[in-house]
């Protein structure tokens, strides 16, 4: 997939690029408003990751420009402003999602993947990973020819893992993804272990390889 990252903070930009490009996606960057505007005028992207506060302009203006150009690029806003107004006006202007800083790169990746999946018009609502086959519209999971009956949390977990395949994902990121940041799970991270154990068991029982690897102290990794 082709992504445009509009972010003025160099250190953050570098981390995001590193995380995304390893996957084989093309990740372009713009570090200010003017560059961003030029790029969205010329190219089409699967998803634009947009920081609202830019040194030379308002990120909201980029959204307005996209609308004016009748572009159908997916937009994910990343902002330090945890404000309801910003979130609502961003979504009203056509953004697809809103992520508040600080965030986990794995969360960003999962959300971008979801946006790209929703935006693609070729009926691409399938997630494929070796023998695992997920229909995101019907929320149905198959391993080979066997259907796997997953709970909502296990399903979310699997989609999240596949979006971040071959990456180490922290327990904190998983907990936040599954329960949102409303529930303060900082003292209960280990409690997601139950869900991972169940997911692994169900997949293996359906004849799937065990792709979930536990990384001691840090988290989990989903890879072949």
């Amino acid at each position: 997939m082709k992504i445009l990252l509009i972010e003025d903070e160099v250190a953050l930009r570098d981390s995001i690029i590193a995380y995304f490009t390893e996957e084989g996606s093309i990740c372009e960057t713009a570090d200010d408003y003017a560059t961003a505007l030029t790029k969205i005028n010329i190219y089409n992207y699967d998803c634009i990751v947009l920081d609202l506060t830019l040194p030379d302009g308002d990120g909201m203006e980029i959204l307005r420009n996209l609308k004016r150009l009748h572009k159908n690029d997916g937009v994910l806003i990343i902002s330090a402003r945890h404000s309801l107004d910003d979130k609502l006006s961003g979504l009203n202007l056509g953004a697809d999602d809103y992520l508040v800083k600080p965030f986990h790169l794995s969360e960003l990746k999962a959300r971008v993947s979801a946006i790209v999946r929703r935006k693609s018009f070729d009926g691409n609502n399938l997630i494929l990973f070796h023998e695992i086959n997920i229909d995101t519209l019907a929320m149905k999971t198959m391993v080979g020819q066997n259907s796997v009956n997953l709970t909502k949390k296990e399903y979310d977990l699997l989609v999240y893992f596949i979006a971040n395949q071959s990456k180490v994902i922290t327990k904190g990121a998983l907990a936040e993804h599954l329960w949102g940041d409303e529930i303060d799970l900082s003292d209960h991270f280990d409690f997601i272990y139950t869900h991972i154990k169940n997911l692994r068991k169900k997949l293996v029982e359906a004849g799937c390889n065990d792709y979930i690897k536990s990384m001691y102290g840090v988290g989990y990794k989903f890879s072949s």
Binding site: L12, S15, A80, P102, F103, S106
Partner: peptide
């Protein structure tokens, strides 16, 4: 956010 992303 930078610290978090660098840790990731």
């Amino acid at each position: 956010a930078v610290i978090n992303s660098k840790l990731d």
